[in-house]
């Protein structure tokens, strides 16, 4: 197992290099450049070229890429073009908020999705199952900006239960438990928006996986042993049924971080997603690259964790 993990980590290095290479070039293909967003358009072209030379943007792209790579390997994510702030610092400031949001959404997805899937499977082809099928279809199809605005309209504006945006109440000096309550109130709406599609997918997956397991011979054996229905369902069927759900677990990590871009924007959540959007608009290449690198590492880590979880959940799977 240990050597398997080491091998997977080594494999990740060329993959990461490939990803950064691709994103670096794609980014350069996009129209516009950082100078246009920071310099007054009335400034003469010669001045603009001077700034460009100072920043090194007149060099060939491949040269720029290796320059960037050299710095990365030394642990330097670069500096923002406009303010010269270190990118590492910028990201570390935003990371906790994003982690809080995505982890909450991740937990919600499985804590809500799995029980609903089980419920749906147990009531197969009856009214509750049909209702949940429609709900999950809507959950997968509805765009998050629309769902988010709907929630804000209903729960924040009409009912006033939750705040419309932000991560905590500004101007209030809360401590201890009251602070957690404040965070919780702020996170409910964005986390729900972010979790909804994953809840729907987890629910459908759990349902079909469980129904498949129900028809297997060892379930009949379990009944023949005299076990109660709930032991058969939760001990014998569910553990087998959840093995394929681990795949969703791995896939949902990049999905949630990607979804955070839009959700954070809607709810003005001070995380990496909103940083990402403003960086793309401002053509802040170093920030975009750093965020990309971070997300790629997350995706690879998510896949690795999913593969390790398989071996943990299913004794038939062993890596060597």
């Amino acid at each position: 197992m240990g050597s398997y993990i080491v091998r997977r980590l080594l494999q990740a290095v060329p993959i990461l290099i490939g990803i950064t290479l691709l994103t670096f070039f794609i980014m350069q293909l996009a129209p516009g450049n950082p100078m246009q967003t920071m310099i007054n358009p009335k400034i003469p072209l010669s001045e603009m070229q001077k700034v460009q030379e100072e920043l090194g943007f007149n060099k060939p792209v491949i040269y720029q890429y290796f320059n960037w790579l050299k710095e990365i390997l030394q642990g330097n994510l670069g500096y923002t073009i406009k303010t010269g702030q270190p990118v590492t610092q910028l990201i570390l400031e935003r990371l906790p908020a994003t982690l809080l949001l995505t982890c909450t959404a991740f937990l919600l997805s499985f804590v809500i999705g799995i029980p609903l899937g089980v419920y749906s499977a147990l009531h197969r082809n009856k009214t509750p199952d049909y209702v949940l099928t429609v709900v999950s279809l809507v959950g997968i199809s509805i765009p998050s900006f629309f769902f988010g605005l709907g929630l804000i309209f209903l729960f924040a504006l009409k009912l006033g239960w939750f705040p419309t945006s932000g991560m905590k109440t500004i101007g209030k000096d809360l401590t201890g438990f009251a602070l957690y309550i404040d965070y919780a109130k702020h996170i409910i709406l964005p986390a729900s928006v972010l979790a909804l599609p994953t809840v729907a997918v987890v629910m459908r997956f759990t349902r079909s996986s469980l129904l498949e397991v129900f028809s297997m011979d060892f379930i009949r054996t379990a009944h023949a042993k005299g076990l109660s229905k709930s032991v058969v369902i939760f001990k014998h069927a569910l553990r087998n049924a959840l093995i394929p759900v681990i795949t969703i677990f791995g896939l949902s990590i990049p999905f949630l971080f990607g979804g955070a871009y839009i959700t954070e924007h809607i709810f003005n959540w001070p995380g990496m997603g909103s940083l990402g959007i403003s960086s793309i608009v401002g053509r802040e290449y170093p920030v975009i690259m750093a965020l990309n690198l971070f997300t790629s590492i997350l995706v690879l880590a998510g896949n690795l964790i999913a593969d390790i979880s398989y071996a943990w959940a299913d004794p038939r799977i062993r890596y060597s």
Partner: peptide, 24 residues
Amino acid sequence: RAIRGNEISMIFQEPMTSLNPVYS
């Protein structure tokens, strides 16, 4: 249920699939 597995037991045709794969 008190009778199944206790006073009346059953074995099946397919030993390959009649045991739960995830428990010893």
